[in-house]
Design a protein around this nucleic acid. Sequence first.
DNA 1: TTAAGGTAGATGCAAACGCATGAAGATTGG
DNA 2: CCAATCTTCATGCGTTTGCATCTACCTTAA
Lengths: 159, 159
Amino acid sequence: MTRSRSRRANEAWEALLTAHASLMKRFAAEPIWGELSMREYDVLYTLSKHDEPLRLFELGRGVLLSQPALSRLVDRLADRGLIERTPDPEDGRGVRLDLTEAGRERQRRVGGRHAVDVARAVTAALTDEEIALLEAIGRKLAAQGAATPAQRNRQEAVL
Amino acid sequence: MTRSRSRRANEAWEALLTAHASLMKRFAAEPIWGELSMREYDVLYTLSKHDEPLRLFELGRGVLLSQPALSRLVDRLADRGLIERTPDPEDGRGVRLDLTEAGRERQRRVGGRHAVDVARAVTAALTDEEIALLEAIGRKLAAQGAATPAQRNRQEAVL
DNA sequence: TTAAGGTAGATGCAAACGCATGAAGATTGG
DNA sequence: CCAATCTTCATGCGTTTGCATCTACCTTAA
């Protein structure tokens, strides 16, 4: 019945969490980051993946950080000249974020070294087939996480 | 050649990161946590998995947190009566950490609700086979992360 | 035995975070 | 058209984090 399937789902999730924590520690310990924290790098990397500037809230979808924290993280990166912040002409509330040339260059430098470490760790642990499966499974899970934005009006509605 | 394999490894890792961030946000948004942060819950959960008390540094292996931060997080949980902290009789430097009855009870309560959410998300996204694969792959990656504790004496040794 | 070096955990302090809230532009319904 | 509501981002403030460092204890080797 469902019992076993739920249990297995939880065990798989725990395995994912453990893998995440374990490898993140490993990567964080590598002497490749320079002045960047991993979170800052994550933001630079996300921006580097997109050609058009991103809105702050779009950036927020990919980053595990509260909106105010992200807002200030972007502040700092802008102060350091790695990110350009311009008001969105199509939405007076919004901000358009883009890498500066220095930011793009910095991302490439650090990203190149980091990619080596990632490849080393992942290929050492998994076969080609497992790597492909991990990517497919990760995408499915990510899609699931993004869905169903909210339906929590129960408790509040009652009071 | 190695090129493609490295690239695939990086894409798989990115998929894992995205899945992690996406689902963590989802779970964090659930109204099940009460007075606990997810990090605090993580510590309670880790302790609940072990019968004997854990050392602080053992706890640290599973938690993505610096040693001082973990030390103080445990402080707070002890102040709240959820964790018991006793000096290790076999190692004068060490501390033995265990859940109090209140801590165990709190973990069970929150953990039960959380497990439901995890199962819902994971089973909605994956087949039984994928769930099994995710668990196997996660364990392999975690083992890889834990291995090779350190061999960074190159740069330092040179100077 | 004891000096040198290593490991476990705690603490001072500045930086970063989350929550609550605010200001301002967008959107929607009457 | 405009009031009410929602969305986007910023800011005040108390809490938590990380880095550097310290103390205390363990281990090793001479």
